[in-house]
Design a protein around this nucleic acid. Structure first.
Lengths: 196, 196
DNA sequence: GGACAAGTTGACTCACCGAGTCAACTTCCT
DNA sequence: AGGAAGTTGACTCGGTGAGTCAACTTGTCC
């Protein structure tokens, strides 16, 4: 809402800077999460921090502008993939593995899930979409009798939130350790089918 | 190492303040964790922050002075209790339930487990003791075949650390939700005996 | 090819937060 | 009473990153 004008009327150097900043933001946000100092983004874009404010009006505007390239696409892909997995049990197991994998690979999703930037509408929307699938999976899971007794959508939510917090604030485990632990989580919540 | 002199030579008002501060510190640390601003402790003790520095030389000294009453006793109690539970499976299950319960009740243990104050020797010692039991339990568990295949002492450690981070940085769940989730964790790691 | 608006930027202020310090004051004790 | 021991309010300090702005640079259009 400050010096942000439409792309049509932007001078060439300004348009170039907008592009640079977007590219830099996607890269830096993906690597370091959405809370990274804007100075870092500016440095990678070869631009001064003030230019980010001129063009995007601050962190929230920048997040809205790039969130799709940073995480939304991948998050939606997971949800779509999941919905297309046949078999309730495997669908749930697939989702848990996929979301945990994404959380490990992309710290930025954790910022989304934790709602660290509630000012960004784009981000909150994402969050809501992510929440919806939990309800569906848990309902299906119980209907099919493949989920642990008493397991709620809130529990599934908490599972991802706790994991987000662990990854955000703790030491990141090796991929091997992490995947092994994913398996234990699954075993407690939606165990593999017993061998027929 | 500054104005801290032995209890014997302390003037009466000073001795009274030392006591007040200890009492306040135990209460405040238990409620709010070891990272609480020293001003809070001072306020509860009806004393100025400077007095804490005079008497204990800062947070580290204060922690060392009260850690036992804050958490060490309870932590050791859990370990002793655990060691006396007969049956490997129930021993492990008891430990996991007990430590998670303690983490919920006493935020301060989480600061200990997370090693937030590595300057305090008392605290680091505790941490080591807590680590030791993990190795033992996991070894026993595998020998008895009651643990999930591939589960390591590091995994048990990670379980408590991740939980510590979740409680420290996230919203604290209701006790009911928390305990239900404890059960899912156990189910994935050291399931109940199948009905004989 | 120059004038002026658009754009950029370095250097700034600001806010936050709690640790730790110290000179001046108060209390205890003999 | 007097002087050491003790207390304290008000201070500095450090680190961090958002957001601002006056002065400068560059693009654009005639």
């Amino acid at each position: 809402m400050s010096g942000v004008r439409s792309a049509a009327t932007l001078r060439m150097d300004a348009r170039r800077n907008v592009d640079r900043i977007r590219v830099a933001a996607v890269e830096v946000f993906r690597d370091q999460g959405l809370a990274v100092p804007l100075e870092e983004v500016a440095a990678v874009a070869n631009v001064s921090k003030a230019t980010i404010f001129n063009r995007f009006g601050g962190r929230t505007g920048l997040i809205d502008a790039v969130i799709d390239d940073v995480v939304a696409a991948e998050l939606r892909a997971i949800i779509d993939d999941t919905r297309s997995v046949p078999g309730v049990r495997e669908r749930i197991r697939h989702y848990v593995r996929a979301i945990r994998d994404l959380q490990y690979r992309l710290p930025a999703v954790n910022d989304v899930l934790l709602q660290e930037f509630p000012d960004s509408e784009a981000l909150m929307a994402l969050c809501h979409v992510a929440g919806a699938i939990h309800d569906d999976l848990v309902a299906e899971g119980h209907a099919a009798g493949v989920l642990a007794r008493g397991f709620t959508a809130g529990d599934l939510h908490a599972l991802t939130l706790d994991n987000a917090l662990a990854l955000k604030h703790g030491d990141r485990p090796s991929r091997t350790d992490y995947e092994r632990r994913t398996a234990f989580v699954l075993a407690g919540v939606c165990p593999e089918a017993p061998p027929a």
